[in-house]
Structures are given as structure tokens and as C-alpha cells.
Design a protein around this nucleic acid. Structure first.
Length: 807
RNA sequence: GCGGGCGUGGUGAAAUUGGCAGACACGCAAGAUUUAGGUUCUUGUGCCGUAAGGUGUGCAGGUUCAAGUCCUGUCGCCCGCACCA
């Protein structure tokens, strides 16, 4: 027997990476008779820090799936690219006086070599980069289509302004009143901004969640974010004869409305300024509210403030009662109509306000405690009262009836509202896709001709954002000054750029046909590959990227570009890898693990095995520098099996059960993301094999195939050194298991007396109840526990246990 | 406040329809071989107890022959949203 050398990952891993690349075995075919399978991971942002150990967790998981699919005979597309526009690169470029393009190039090169050292079976021939003009040409093209359909529009509005990035942020990018990226304060600023009408798709973005296989938590979070609510709009007439429309989800409580509140920005205030008696006071309140940042405005939520509008009252349309109108910043101008009817008896916020301002509280739903003390908000159980024709009805019935009445009288109607806002799409920065629009004094906003795409970023001297909130592009007069595509007159280019989310909203389509210069992808490619079969990514993208890209995809579906209403058939999410101390990895905490060090010390296979073994894939898991050795041991024990290999091509009888069970277990577990238990099963099998002191060639062959998705380099090495088969194990057929071999002929069943385990007996697998019970009762141990007692009941669970209940 | 999730050994974690709690690892202990910087192998390892046995999945109840799993209550932690009418 020839002793193999000690396993050396430093030689083996690069060797096979090169061999795979040369043979092109991971290239997806656009023209294939095989069934297709499209696996996708969120393409990375090539940051200056290099790869994080978190990246490979997701990439390895879908690599395992992709490799298994190839072995099962699928034509697999598992692509990779770079989401490379964005602020960190731009900020680095500014600081170091280099072009963001060069920074990106360098970062991409580093990421690429790091990823390639992990042996992930990406199809590198389809690599894309969002900052490549041949790519962003199509990002701009999609924008133009959105513009043409009226879904991209410019609007003067209060936006989130990051004081440090000097840039507008989408609502989704503001976290607790601070910039998601840099943590600086975000203030409101009125600016003219490009917007995308994602709200037009709100209903479909909710409903079509039924068409896809996403985790419930992802669906719930998206629904929550879109925030659909049903209710009614009700018109209140003011004593000045104006109409004040409110939105309410509780039209049933209309008889309990004792005052109204409008937001400080409500336009009716200006309209009535001549009539309002205390305009000075109102203005003061408006100014104070405007000065507050989002953060303060929500943080100071506990104590309600407001001012009563003197000289104007509103009339409740159902009972003609006159009620006062207040302004208060607890009512948001951006939601509903910016005005509410206040029902303090049945809304805690209204209750707080009413108590503070001494306003009447009228109970209209019976069933609570004293509404003077606390609002009764549980609408499921209550019965209407003090509400004229609604009295005695349930809340649900009352809602229906009042809406009917309002619609009859023309004073209101049923209405659905969403929390989702339109997407603020402008950024006042350099390193993004230029928005392909020209502003003409005569024609307004005019799209540039599609033949002019891509509209490339001009070279600029300085990327510094300007203090007045304009993009650095605004200083490029040569570029900015142009002719109107419509009338030919002097005009100026739009100088804002698109947000980082633009390029990632459709990138999965480009992978299908990445070099196409006639279309974002050919129709044939789109028809063949769409939808993505399995998309894995982080939970943090649920309300940003995932929602945005679903929106774009639905739009592309509507204009006939893509063949499916949803981009991703199945979505899964990985948990974070934490530092060894259980905290999030960060430089400041000093708990960062560099993947390069791990690959260098233990090898990519060990790194892959460990990241999959570390815990439940969907939950966060702390890194452990000692546990990783267990995975290295598995790799070495696997390699050393070659030392005890016999020429027998078969599988020995005593290992048929374990081998077949492991094939089943590993295969099944990969499908449900249980990589940790799949690896545990492989460990068990190698324990069983080594316990016999030898391994047959046939056994090693199966074991090597099962190992190869997890530890592909070492599997390839064993495959070749031991002469287990032709070609690459990476594309060898996935083994079938024999169900009949998975069941043992004799099994051990547990014998309980009164629910406590007293003995275990070996019986034939097909034993019947009588046989099992009589054998159980024959056990000495069992007898000692039932002696002198009456057997009241006997339970037999087939193949599992016997329970004897004795008193 | 709303939505989602979690709580199991010294550690990471396993556990179809309720059916042997702790698979598989890490760590630790003892032993063997042996390399003398971390190797490999064997055995043991939830807790109490020499043992028989008892006990044990955040806590308190309940259903059941049988509960980590189902039900009720409660405590603690994490994530997302949040004055959304």
C-alpha cells in the first residue's frame, strides 16, 4: 500500500482551481438541452476592506446547491459581478485624489482573487460590473422606459438630507433619523428630486408574494413595510365652507370624533390665513416643527404638542356637530391626507392629546373600561353605541354601513392607503449612473435619445460634493450645457446621478446575456433563464434591494421585456457570522477575522466546511478559531482514507445502510439549507468507515462525490489520486440511494414503563404490536418495574417504542 | 405599540407527524503511540449519586400513556417597523 503524502492545501487548491477554469466546467450554456437552474447570490460591493468572512457563508451555500445541481444534470447559471457604484469608493477617491474608477478596479481585483481562492464555482465568463458603461447603458435605458411610462418624475419635496454625505437619501436609507451609511444626522430639506413611482406597484408587490417561495419573515417584513391599510376618506366641511378630507381606518367611530388635527404643513392653513385668528401662534408652531429633524420629531413623540386654530371649526358630516381643528406634528403630512379626525375614546394618541387639551371624549364602542381614563382600541369585540344608526352593530358591520352611507351622501368613500412612499431616486454625487435627461427651458425634462446611451460620466477634476447640494457634475459646464433633443435649443443636462440601488435592481437579468449590446439581454436568454430559481441574500436587503428589484422586474414585465411577473422564485437568507465574542465583527471591536488568513492556514475547503458547519444557516453564529480544527480534521481524515483503500469496487454489507442513509441525508439537507447536519452525517459516515480499518474503492467513490460540493478541491484530488472515476468529480453524477437499504432489518426499540425508559430491546424491523409487547415484557428490567402492578394500558409505536402503563 | 424570531451541557449546536433529549463537533479528562511548538488513535464526558436510581430543554401551570415540540400565563434576549390615524 502506497502512503500518500500529508495533505497540503497550498498545492492542491490552486491546482484544481486552474484546472476547472481551463476546462470551463462551470460555464453555463445559453443553448442547452438540459434543464436550467439559476442560483444567485447578492453581488458584492467591492469595498476597500476586502472580503469579509460573512461573504463566503452565502456564496458557499449556493455553491453547494449549484454543484449538486450540476451533478444532477442541470445546466446551472451561478454568476458573479460587482455592485461598484457608491459612496465609500467615492469618498476614498476624494480623500486620496484618485479616480473612483481606479479605486474600483483595484478593489475588484482584490475581491476577485480572494473569491477565486475559495473555489466557488462561479461562471467567471459572465462577470459584470455596474460601473461599466456597457452595463449602465441598460440601467439608463430602463430609467428612460420608466420615464416614458410616467413612473419617473421630478418633484419639489422635503427630502432626507445627510449632513455628512451631502446627499439625499431614500426613506429606506434613514435609520433612526440617521444616515444608514455614515450615521450622521439627517435633516429635511426641500429639493427638486427624481422620484420613481413604486407606490403604483404597492398592491402587486404585496399580492404577488403569493407567487413566490420566500421565508415568512421576509414576506411579513415586506408587507409591513408597504403597510397597506383599509379605511375611508371622509370630507368634513369647515365653517369657512372649505373641505377638509381625512383618512381613517376606523370610520365606524365617526360619531366619536370630537376634534380634528391637521399636520403643520397642511396647505389649508395658508388658504385660511386671513380667517385664522391666531396666525402668529400657528406660524411659530410651523417653524418649530420644520426645524425639528425626523429624529427629534419622532423621538419627542411621548408628549403631544399642538395649537388650536382660532376662528375655524369643522362640521362632522354624520351629525352636523361643530368641532375644533388643531395643528400638531403628530399628524404627518406625508401619509393619508395630512389630516385626521380625532376619536380620543378609541385611539391612544388622540386620547393623550385630548387629555392634554381638555377635549371631550365620547365612547362609541362599548366593551372597554372607562374611556375617560384610557382609550379602548380593541375593535374586534366591541359593539357600537352613541352612534345613531350604527348603535348595536359590531365594529366590522358598522364600518361597512358607514362607508355605504358616506358614499350615498357623497361625503366619503372607501380608501386603501400605503405607508410605502415613492422612491427618491436622485443623488447629488459623482460616482453613480448619470440620469439621461436634459432640462430644456422650452420643453421641460426631455429624455435623451436611446441611441445616445450610454450617457457616460465625464472626467471631473474634483469629486467633492458641493455645499449647496448640487452634484459635482454641475461644475462640468462642457458636459452640462447641451442641446435639447426635442427642440434643439440650449439646454442643460441633469446633474444628479442614480442611487446605488439602481444597478442592483436588474443585474440578475444581465447575467443571462452579459455581452449583448443590442438589448439588456436577448429575448431567448430571458425566456430561458427567468426566473432566478434560488436567490440567497441578507435580511438587511428585504425592504431595499429586494423590494426595488421586484418593482423594476414587474415594470419590465409590464412593458414586455421579461416573461415572468416575479424575478426570484425562491429566496433564502443567511445569518451573520459574528466575532468570536458573539458581537458583530468590526474593526473598532477588534474581532475581525480575515478570510485570507483562514485560507492560508487551513485551506479553502476547511473554511467552506467550517462556515457551513458553524450552525443553523439562517441564524447568526459566532466564529470559533478552535472549532475550525474539527473541519480540518475531517478534510485530513478524508484524504487519509486513500491509505487504507482496497481495490474492491463494491460497498461492504455492513456499510450499505450507513452509505445509503448518508446519500439521502446529505442530499435532502442541502435542499433545506441544513448544511450543518449534512456535514455531521458525513463525519458520522467517515467514523463508521474508519472503524472498519479499511475502505473499498466503491465506498470511497461515493464518499468523495458527497464531499465534493462542500470541499471540492480535496474531493477532486482524492478522485484523481485514487483513480475513482473519469474527469472531474465536480461534474460526476450525484449518487442515487436505495430506500430499502436505508431501513435496518433489526432495530432497537425503547421500552418505557409509565413513560420512563427502562430498557431497549433488539427486534426485527417488521415486528407487530403483540410481538413487541411480549418481548418487552420479557425483559428483566421491565419486569422489575411492573411487578405487582396492574397493566392498565399498552402503547406500541411502530419501529420506535413500547410504553407500558402500570399501576 | 405592531410584526418576526429566539431561550437546550463548559462551548457551537442536533432532535419528521408529540415517541430514547444532547446527534455531530469544540473543549476537557485519562490512557496508548509518538511528533517534542498545536500530531494521531482509544476511552470517558448534562447534572446529583460509588451504585441502583433520581433529575434535566428560561420560569409557572395545563393537555397526554408520552411534551424541547401542543395550549395558557410569565420572564429575558435579538431583529425589523413605528405618532402611518
Amino acid at each position: 500500500m502506497k502512503m500518500t503524502e500529508k495533505y497540503n492545501h497550498k498545492n492542491v487548491e490552486p491546482k484544481w482551481q486552474k484546472a476547472w477554469e481551463q476546462a470551463g466546467i462551470f460555464h453555463a450554456e445559453n443553448d442547452s438541452s438540459k434543464p436550467k437552474y439559476y442560483t444567485l447570490i447578492e453581488f458584492p460591493y467591492p469595498s476597500g476592506q476586502g472580503l469579509h468572512v460573512g461573504h463566503p457563508r452565502s456564496y458557499t451555500a449556493l455553491d453547494i446547491v449549484s454543484r449538486k445541481r450540476r451533478m444532477q444534470g442541470y445546466n446551472v447559471l451561478y454568476p458573479i459581478g460587482w455592485d461598484a457604484f457608491g459612496l465609500p469608493t467615492e469618498n476614498f477617491a476624494i480623500k486620496n485624489h484618485v479616480h473612483p474608477k481606479d479605486v474600483t478596479k483595484k478593489n475588484v481585483a482584490r475581491f476577485k482573487s480572494q473569491l477565486q481562492s475559495l473555489g466557488i464555482s462561479f461562471d467567471w465568463s459572465r462577470e459584470i460590473n455596474t460601473t461599466d458603461p456597457s452595463y449602465y447603458k441598460w440601467t439608463q435605458w430602463i430609467f428612460l422606459q420608466l420615464f416614458k411610462k410616467g413612473l419617473a418624475y421630478k418633484k419639489e419635496m422635503a427630502v432626507n438630507w445627510c449632513t455628512s454625505c451631502k446627499c439625499v437619501l431614500a426613506n429606506e436609507e434613514v435609520v433612526n433619523g440617521a444616515c444608514e451609511r455614515c450615521g450622521s444626522e439627517v435633516v429635511r430639506k426641500v429639493k427638486s428630486q427624481w422620484m420613481l413611482k413604486i407606490t403604483a406597484y404597492a398592491e402587486r408587490l404585496i399580492n404577488d408574494l403569493d407567487l413566490v417561495n420566500y421565508p415568512d419573515r421576509v414576506k411579513a417584513q415586506q408587507k409591513n413595510w408597504i403597510g397597506r391599510s383599509t379605511g375611508a376618506e371622509v370630507d368634513f366641511t369647515t365653517t369657512t365652507g372649505d373641505i377638509l378630507t381625512v383618512y381613517t381606518t376606523r370610520p365606524d367611530t365617526l360619531f366619536g370624533a370630537t376634534y380634528m388635527v391637521i399636520s403643520p404643513e397642511h396647505p389649508i392653513i395658508e388658504k385660511l390665513s386671513g380667517v385664522i385668528g391666531n396666525m402668529d401662534e400657528i406660524r411659530k408652531y410651523q417653524e418649530a416643527a420644520a426645524r425639528k429633524s425626523d429624529f427629534e420629531r419622532t423621538e419627542v413623540a411621548k408628549d403631544k404638542t399642538g395649537v388650536k386654530i382660532e376662528g375655524v371649526e369643522a362640521v362632522n358630516p354624520v351629525n352636523g356637530r361643530q368641532i375644533p381643528v388643531f395643528i400638531s406634528d403628530y399628524v404627518l403630512v406625508s401619509y393619508g391626507t395630512g389630516a385626521i379626525m380625532a376619536v380620543p375614546a378609541h385611539d391612544t394618541r388622540d386620547h393623550d392629546f385630548a387629555v392634554k387639551f381638555g377635549l371631550p371624549i365620547i365612547e362609541v364602542v362599548k366593551g372597554g373600561e372607562d374611556v375617560q381614563k384610557e382609550a379602548f382600541t380593541d375593535c374586534a369585540t366591541g359593539i357600537m353605541t352613541n352612534s345613531d344608526y350604527l348603535d348595536g352593530l359590531s365594529v366590522d358591520d358598522a364600518k361597512k354601513k358607514i362607508i355605504e352611507k358616506l358614499e350615498e351622501s357623497g361625503k366619503g368613500k372607501a380608501k386603501v392607503n400605503y405607508k410605502l412612499r415613492d422612491w427618491v431616486f436622485s443623488r447629488q454625487r459623482y460616482w453613480g449612473e448619470p440620469i439621461p435627461i436634459v432640462h430644456c427651458p422650452c420643453c421641460g425634462a426631455v429624455p435623451i435619445d436611446e441611441s445616445e446611451l450610454p450617457l457616460e460620466l465625464p472626467e471631473v477634476e474634483s469629486y467633492e460634493p458641493t455645499d449647496n447640494g448640487e452634484s459635482p457634475l454641475a461644475k462640468m459646464t462642457d458636459w452640462v450645457n447641451t442641446k435639447c433633443p426635442k427642440c434643439g435649443g440650449d439646454a442643460k443636462r441633469e446633474t444628479d446621478t442614480m442611487p446605488q440601488w439602481a444597478g442592483s435592481s436588474w443585474y440578475f437579468l444581465r447575467y443571462m446575456d452579459p455581452h449583448n449590446d443590442k438589448a439588456l439581454a436577448s429575448k431567448e436568454a430571458l425566456d430561458y433563464w427567468t426566473p432566478v430559481d434560488w436567490y440567497n441574500g441578507g435580511m438587511e436587503h428585504t425592504t431595499l434591494h429586494l423590494l426595488y428589484s421586484r418593482f423594476w422586474h414587474k415594470f419590465l414585465y409590464d412593458i414586455g421585456v421579461v416573461p415572468t411577473p416575479e424575478p426570484y422564485a425562491k429566496r433564502t437568507s443567511h445569518g451573520m457570522i459574528l466575532g468570536e465574542n458573539g458581537e458583530k465583527m468590526s474593526k473598532s471591536r477588534g474581532n475581525v477575522v480575515n478570510p485570507d488568513d483562514i485560507v492560508n492556514e487551513y485551506g479553502a475547503d476547511t473554511m467552506r466546511l467550517f462556515e457551513m458547519f458553524i450552525g443553523d444557516f439562517e441564524n447568526a453564529a459566532p466564529w470559533s478559531s478552535s472549532s475550525i480544527r474539527g473541519c480540518r480534521r475531517l478534510a485530513e481524515r478524508f484524504y487519509n482514507l486513500m491509505n487504507i483503500m482496497t481495490d474492491d469496487e463494491g460497498i461492504r454489507a455492513e456499510l450499505e445502510g450507513p452509505v445509503n442513509k448518508t446519500i439521502k441525508k446529505v442530499g435532502d439537507d442541502i435542499e433545506i439549507l441544513k448544511f450543518n447536519t449534512a456535514i455531521a452525517a458525513l463525519m458520522s459516515l467517515i467514523n463508521d468507515i474508519t472503524a472498519t480499518g479499511s475502505v473499498t474503492k466503491g465506498e470511497l467513490k461515493v464518499f468523495t462525490i458527497l464531499m465534493s460540493p462542500f470541499a471540492p478541491h480535496i474531493a477532486e484530488e482524492v478522485w484523481s489520486q485514487a483513480g475513482l472515476g473519469e474527469g472531474f468529480v465536480s461534474i460526476a453524477p450525484w449518487p442515487e440511494y436505495d430506500e430499502s437499504k436505508c431501513v435496518e432489518s433489526t432495530i432497537e426499540i425503547v421500552v418505557q414503563v409509565n413513560g420512563k425508559v427502562r430498557d431497549k430491546i433488539k427486534v426485527a424491523a417488521d415486528i407487530d404490536q403483540e410481538g413487541a409487547l411480549s418481548q418487552a415484557k420479557a425483559s428483566e428490567k421491565v419486569q422489575s418495574f411492573i411487578e405487582g402492578k396492574n397493566i392498565v394500558k399498552e402503547i406500541y409505536v411502530k419501529g420506535k417504542l413500547v410504553n407500558i402503563v402500570a399501576k
